[in-house]
């Protein structure tokens, strides 16, 4: 699911300009699986797929696989179209040091949205 973030993608790469000072490691949990995503200077440099024994990361986004699947639809339904929409419905939990996320919130929203299928794909 989120392992595709490490694939070369023009739209995703274009986001770097919004986060060129960002270096962080964060986790996405689908409850049945975990992904650790490393970002260096605004580019995804590595995605590791769990399970992990002693994972180290700055912040974590946790939602069920079903909720992430709805979020990643080409045109998500209302309430599934944005990270904060998931938070509002209490189906997403965000914890850890939130500064990297909140200081680059649009970047992270667009980074995850870049996994949505486009007309070309």
């Amino acid at each position: 699911m989120f392992d595709k973030l490490s694939e070369n993608n023009e739209e995703r790469n274009s986001l770097q300009i919004m986060a060129k000072n960002l270096n962080t490691v964060f986790m996405i949990s689908t409850m049945d699986n975990e992904y650790i995503i490393k970002i260096i200077q605004g580019l995804v440099s590595e995605v590791k797929i769990g399970p992990f024994v002693m994972p180290s990361y700055e912040f974590k986004l946790t939602a069920s696989k079903d909720e992430w699947n709805k979020f990643l639809k080409a045109i998500p339904i209302p309430g599934s179209h944005d990270l904060i929409a998931l938070l509002r419905r209490k189906v997403l939990k965000i914890d850890g040091n939130l500064h990297p996320l909140m200081s680059h919130l649009l970047y992270f929203k667009l980074l995850l949205a870049s996994l949505r299928p486009t007309e070309e794909s």
């Binding site: 904060i84 909140m102 200081s103």
Partner: peptide, 16 residues
């Protein structure tokens, strides 16, 4: 002061 106000406010509005 450690988060750019324009960036965060824009990001919140974008999702709505």
């Amino acid at each position: 002061q450690d988060v750019h106000g324009g960036e965060i406010c824009g990001a919140i509005a974008y999702g709505l």
